[in-house]
């Protein structure tokens, strides 16, 4: 279905149809939700591998800012979740620390940490998905590879924002160790990219909002944000994650994501 050229009127009509279907049975909205999630995933399939620099600015409610610098490499794995390696450069006391994770479509992920002071690689528990990543407002699960199978979906509505049509989809984590009951995704219909996620905590209270800002296209296909801003509504804290120096097609293999490489990376 090509929705990109749908006229406004048609969009309204379709929304009406979906709403009608929604009222008749829960299933069509779930099917539609899954369909959208699959389309988002499909349009991001085939990137192969990627590396990028990350800078995180952690801001507390008084406005004090501390920063983290990291670099990340990702390898797309056919039929399973991605592999990724994050290397820490700042703050300096954690320089050299590296984090390797193999995400899986089903079951728990595998995670290893390299601790440079002891030259030690340690396999760590991976049910920490709801925990904060390096003290930021991002949880591990917010940054790990977004596999379709990790959620169930429900299409809510089409919504026009600033002249663009967005598909509003709610998703529900399958894993019970997730910190969320639900997330509301804003999928920009034209490019099928997620531009906003609103998170609800385990008590179903509004917790955080994540905005994806300033997208660039790579390899004529894949859209990546230059910035991700996570705001915690309950604590007033905010984390700005800036991405730079995206490089695709580095020719990475599994070897670049093994525990030997985790040990070697500086």
């Amino acid at each position: 279905m090509n929705l990109t050229r749908t006229s406004k009127t048609l969009a309204f009509q379709m929304a009406a149809v979906f709403m009608a279907l929604n009222g008749a049975s829960a299933e069509p909205s779930e099917e539609r939700g899954l369909e959208i999630a699959k389309e988002v995933d499909l349009r991001d399939t085939g990137f192969g591998d990627m590396k990028a620099e990350m800078e995180m600015a952690l801001q507390n409610r008084h406005g004090d800012v501390s920063t983290r610098r990291m670099s990340m490499k990702t390898l797309e794995v056919q039929g399973d979740g991605d592999k990724s390696l994050i290397y820490f450069d700042q703050p300096r006391d954690v320089k050299g620390t590296a984090f390797l994770s193999f995400t899986h479509k089903e079951g728990q992920d595998d995670q290893w940490l390299y601790l440079p002071a002891l030259a030690r690689v340690k396999r760590i528990a991976s049910n920490n998905k709801s925990g904060p990543f390096v003290g930021s407002e991002f949880a591990y699960e917010d940054l790990s590879s977004q596999e379709v199978e990790k959620y169930t979906y429900k299409y809510i509505e089409d919504r026009e924002i600033d002249g663009k049509n967005f598909l509003i989809v709610e998703r529900y984590p399958v894993d019970r160790s997730s910190g969320y009951t639900r997330q509301i995704m804003y999928v920009e219909e034209e490019r099928y990219i997620v531009t906003k996620i609103v998170f609800y905590d385990r008590k179903d209270s509004l917790l955080k909002t994540l905005d994806f800002v300033d997208f660039n296209q790579y390899l004529d296909k894949f859209w990546r944000p230059n910035e991700m801003v996570m705001e915690n509504h309950q604590t007033g804290k905010k984390t700005e994650l800036s991405w730079s120096e995206y490089v695709f097609s580095n020719g990475y293999t599994d070897r670049d994501f093994d525990q030997k490489t985790l040990r070697n990376i500086r």
């Binding site: 728990q108 595998d110 396999r123 760590i124 528990a125 991976s126 049910n127 920490n128 160790s177």
Partner: peptide
């Protein structure tokens, strides 16, 4: 030897 399952090592 380490066995990792959920939060248990």
């Amino acid at each position: 030897l380490q066995y990792t399952q959920g939060g248990l090592l």
